[in-house]
């Protein structure tokens, strides 16, 4: 009691701090549970023996581990082909977006020219128009692709069919109008605006051309922005559902549309899609689908969590 009378303020501050610490810990543990538990549950279900999936005494960890459903789903999804296709799409489109979007962002942020504001408004327009609005006509354009009328100059071959090829993703990305390219242009533009103006002047005085300045001076300084865009572009291409299910009509598709039509796939296979029996199979398919980005995340986690802060998007 004597202590209380002596230091009321210090004591109050300390107890408030303790309270906040406690609440924060509880909150973080609760949310971590909310984020991690479903994943853990999915992994456990995926490796469970399919016959014992309805055993009510199994709470989380299976009594009998088995690879059966994973093996089965590798066949049903045609996993190696589909995953390879998804990987190729994600990697090539990401590379294409990196080149095109960084150039456009650089032009928009470091140069002044007539129509610059108009072009930026158009970039914003590509961000806010739902991709589905242009998907049907994009589909037709790719089915009968004529390079904007160039192919019609050659007689005998009016168009080529680009559906079911990676070009449906890579071509728009090469021209900075691919999946969420507008956002990438925005990220680069914001980053480049933060660099000191004197860079280009010094380079020009030393005799660098615009392209040389860009490659030798700007790119090395913009590594954080490039990392951010690489990670997000990869993840978004991997997780894309709408465009990939439109542009790929064969059996070998990117993984997301396959996962979306999982019920049909299970129905067609010997497994069937009745809710409870199919649970381990569905969990295995989901695990197989998110495994590659998850592995990427584990190794690049540091860049993810620090990327946006360092790339100065918000600054």
């Amino acid at each position: 009691m004597k202590f209380l009378k002596q230091n009321p303020k210090v004591l109050r501050d300390r107890s408030v701090k303790l309270c906040i610490d406690f609440l924060r810990t509880v909150f973080i543990i609760t949310l971590s549970y909310l984020f991690v538990y479903p994943l853990l549950f999915m992994v456990c279900t995926a490796f469970q023996d399919p016959t014992s999936v309805n055993d009510p005494s199994v709470i989380l960890f299976p009594k009998k581990w088995s690879l059966e459903s994973v093996k089965e789903m590798i066949e049903v999804l045609r996993y190696w082909d589909s995953a390879w296709l998804t990987l190729i799409i994600a990697v090539t489109s990401t590379l294409a977006s990196l080149v095109s979007c960084s150039l456009v962002g650089y032009g928009l942020s470091r140069y002044k020219f007539k129509g610059q504001n108009l072009i930026f408004m158009l970039v914003v327009l590509t961000i806010i128009v739902p991709p589905q609005t242009i998907l049907p006509s994009k589909l037709l354009n790719f089915q009968f692709f004529d390079f904007g009328g160039l192919l019609s100059l050659i007689p005998g071959k009016p168009s080529v069919n680009l559906l079911n090829t990676v070009w449906t993703f890579v071509l728009p990305s090469l021209f900075a109008t691919g999946l969420r390219s507008g956002l990438f242009i925005y990220i680069f533009k914001q980053f480049f605006s933060g660099l000191p103006k004197e860079l280009e002047e010094a380079a020009r005085i030393d005799g660098c051309s615009a392209m040389q300045t860009y490659v030798r001076i700007i790119i090395p300084l913009a590594v954080p922005a490039f990392i951010t865009v690489t990670l997000f572009s990869f993840i978004w291409h991997w997780n894309d559902l709408y465009s990939s299910s439109m542009f790929f009509t064969n059996d070998v598709k990117p993984l997301m549309p396959l996962l979306n039509s999982l019920d049909t796939l299970l129905e067609r296979s010997s497994i069937g899609s009745s809710a409870y029996v199919a649970r381990t199979y569905k969990a295995s398919a989901t695990l197989l689908t998110i495994l590659p980005p998850l592995i990427l995340y584990i190794f690049t986690q540091k860049y993810f969590t620090e990327s946006i802060e360092r790339s100065g998007i918000v600054g």
């Binding site: 095109s100 650089y106 590509t126 128009v129 609005t133 994009k138 354009n141 904007g148 109008t177 691919g178």
Partner: peptide
């Protein structure tokens, strides 16, 4: 030069956005 840097987007906008839109 600035316009040339944004040229990829201008072409892409016409080919893969404006036309389908």
């Amino acid at each position: 030069t600035g316009f040339l840097f944004t040229l990829p987007f201008v072409i892409g906008f016409v080919l893969f956005f404006l036309r389908p839109l």
